[in-house]
Amino acid sequence: MFAYQIKQYGKQEQLFLNEIQKPVLSENSIIIKVHSASLNPVDYRIRNGDTKFVLRYSMPLTLGHDFSGVIEAVGSKITQFRVGDSVYGRTPMTGAFQEYVVVGENDIAKAPKNLSLVESASVPLAGLTAYQGLFDWLQLKEKQSILILGGSGGVGHIAIQLALLTDAKVYTTASKEGQAFLQQFGSIEFIDYHKENFYEVLPPVDAVFDMRGGDELTHSFDVVKTGGKIASITSIPTPSYAKSANMNWFYQMILRAFTAKMYHLSKKKNIVFHSFLTQSNRQELEKITELVESEKLTISIQKIYPISEINTAMKEISNGRAKGKIVVDFTNKERNE
């Protein structure tokens, strides 16, 4: 089967077309023929080598984290799905940019009935990341206030909608173009980062959800109320994530060392800080499906590329200016190196 892989880490590394062995079915696994996959910032961060101290991969490496497709085979102990089901989900690690994926029952859900399979591919990772950030880590409650950094991106525009559904007061940083894009989702307070710094104008908030990192993450500690919370997907995972993911004490110690600056800052400010990696969760993905099917949650797709143009798609997601999601369609049969 075909796979789009990298040979080594590097910001200029190109995905190349390779032939690899098809996954083997086990009693607890499901084999899916991939229809489409979406691109996410984690894909170029892995390609760049940003995560290599936490996540160990062997080369060549197939990138990609979420997908849609049709089930081709199910193991003898699979009870929730059957051959022919249209599904969407995320790979347990990486590897969605290939012809077939093998996953478990917890990694997927039935694809939304009101979306095509191409559209469905845009949902799983961004949807789960937004859901887990808001509700598992920040534990956002009704009427609370939240700053969402990077609101016009793939995760951000979903997080804004989910936060609004809880009747939260939502602030976000966005360009003028980003504001025009996000206004469709409801009542949002915008801070134009071209004109002002959020930490100089924002009133204290209960929570911050960070999709930007760097100085913006550091300054988040200046705007959160005492006892408030910050969740980030840009920093190295914190020991709280390692514990939730059942990593052993050694990894928890390593992550404590890598995140010492943020740990001390959170203690000094009396703020709870979590940095996390998204986890598979069928129940949460099913909740997202219900919101999509009831039209309470809209996933915006900026562009759909044929799989043969995956490097162009990767370049676009890498520039950090995408409004919504970028998807690659595997049903286009043209393939080039």
Rank of each mutant, 00 (worst) to 15 (best):
A3R: 07
I6G: 06
Q8C: 11
Q8S: 15
Q8M: 10
L15S: 08
E19N: 13
N28W: 11
N40W: 00
N40R: 01
R47K: 11
R47V: 05
R56Q: 14
L61P: 11
F67E: 03
S76T: 13
S76I: 06
G84R: 00
Y88R: 10
R90W: 01
F97C: 08
V101Y: 08
V102G: 08
E105V: 02
E105L: 08
N106C: 00
N106Y: 02
I108W: 01
I108E: 00
A109D: 04
A111Q: 09
S116Y: 03
S116F: 08
V118G: 10
A126R: 04
L128P: 01
T129N: 04
A130N: 05
G133C: 05
G133F: 02
W137P: 03
K141Y: 08
K141F: 04
K143R: 13
Q144Y: 04
I148T: 07
G151Q: 02
G154I: 02
A159F: 01
Q161G: 00
L165I: 11
T166L: 15
A168Y: 06
V170W: 06
Y171S: 03
T173H: 06
S175E: 05
A180P: 00
Q183H: 14
G186N: 08
D192M: 09
Y193E: 03
F198P: 05
P203H: 00
A207W: 03
A207D: 06
D215L: 13
L217V: 11
L217H: 11
T218P: 05
H219Q: 15
D222K: 14
V224K: 07
V224W: 00
I230W: 08
I236W: 03
P239R: 01
S240E: 14
Y241L: 11
K243M: 13
K243E: 14
A245T: 01
N246W: 04
A257T: 12
M262E: 14
Y263W: 13
K267A: 01
I271A: 11
T278E: 00
Q279E: 13
S280M: 10
L285Q: 09
E290G: 12
V292T: 12
Y305L: 11
I310C: 06
S318C: 10
N319K: 12
A322I: 04
G324T: 00
I326L: 13
E334P: 10
R335I: 02
